[in-house]
Design a protein around this nucleic acid. Structure first.
Lengths: 200, 200
DNA sequence: AATGAAAGTTTCCCCTGTAAACATGGGCGT
DNA sequence: ACGCCCATGTTTACAGGGGAAACTTTCATT
């Protein structure tokens, strides 16, 4: 963002600077059509410089998505840790954090789940996504052990929970939860419905 | 797809031909990067011809998404109608139909919920999406009236149900429901969890 | 038959992704 | 200290896409 003008020929950490710029641009404009050249321009380097750090445009996109998953994992973990001890409360806190994350940076969230960020093409991205997913899984496992959640297959709980949260986030981004008369707290209401099925 | 070679100067229904071609290409290749020019080529017209029928590339994309919602509505309605009388069974049938639709044509499904298909930019698209959503809403309303579903706010049920189905569809497309050890029937299992919370 | 709008085509411009060739300069072996 | 290598930049070049503008062909209408 803020570079000294007398930047030396070698940037120092251009890779990081590029991802920072890209993330900032992604966050700044809803529905941004990503162009590598614009990222390079705003970072203050030539349009070919990024190719020294990313094989192609998609590799940068995948890196952005990976960072997104790491960030999401952090905010979810933080939210779940700081909330009360009840597993149900933790789940709601984590879900809220995820949905808030999506609403706060729709471009990044969309990217994370778009075809452009192909998880099969980059193990690091795949792992980051799985690790974030794992946060939910661990909560559900612990909740099952202490009897908070029903003892059905943990994977069923995880799939249901993750799908619910992700689905709500996508619908929220699309504005489909607000404009139409969907109660005052559609997210909370929907989560309660699911939790009634999950809780013992 | 199959045109007579001596196609007259005026195509007759180029608009339809373009959408057909585009839909076919979308279905044919997972993760296709959409280009108007390629659609025009495969349709056998000049690359500028589409502009006589669509203001720009995005208008065509929105039309494709609209058609997608109409189709989705049809398969869901069909699935729900042909299944048993139980509201719960109907819900599962509809959800399955939606997820199968997504798996059958991931490109189209992704497009329908991507930022490229901006529902705020086209009332017809918006209405089509809302109408498909309404299918679920109606089922839930009826199910509440006959006591199948709990008498919580209908909108809460609808948001929960729609989010769940959509989330599962997205995860399924991403392959996140199959590769990791998520039971044999993750979809059914997840829906059952939700339905346990929805049903009376 | 004349004509004007609708629906195609050609041509043009600018932008993007990406490859190749060239430039710079910091760190290493000697 | 010197020189050289290589990572990391830059410039240049090219193909392909989106979209505007101007031209052309039909068809329907009078």
């Amino acid at each position: 963002m803020s570079e000294t003008k007398d930047r030396p020929y070698h940037h120092g950490d251009l890779r990081r600077a590029l991802t920072d710029t890209a993330l900032a641009m992604l966050a700044a404009s809803r529905n941004w059509s990503f162009t590598l050249r614009e990222v390079a321009r705003r970072t203050g380097v030539s349009h070919a410089a990024p190719y020294k750090h990313f094989r192609d445009r998609e590799e940068l996109l995948r890196e952005l998505a990976r960072i997104g998953f790491v960030r999401l994992g952090r905010v979810m973990t933080a939210a779940m840790a700081s909330d009360g001890p009840s597993a149900r409360a933790k789940f709601i806190a984590g879900a809220r954090a995820c949905i808030d994350f999506a609403l706060d940076d729709p471009g990044l969230y969309r990217l994370m789940f778009s075809g452009d960020a192909d998880k099969a093409a980059d193990p690091r991205l795949h792992d980051a996504a799985m690790e974030t997913f794992g946060i939910f899984l661990h909560l559900l496992q612990k909740g099952q052990r202490d009897g908070s959640f029903r003892p059905v297959a943990t994977n069923a709980l995880a799939a249901a929970g993750w799908a619910q949260v992700h689905g709500l986030a996508m619908l929220a981004i699309d504005g489909q939860l607000l404009e139409e008369k969907v109660g005052t707290e559609p997210v909370r209401a929907a989560l309660d419905v699911l939790l009634d099925g999950m809780c013992a």
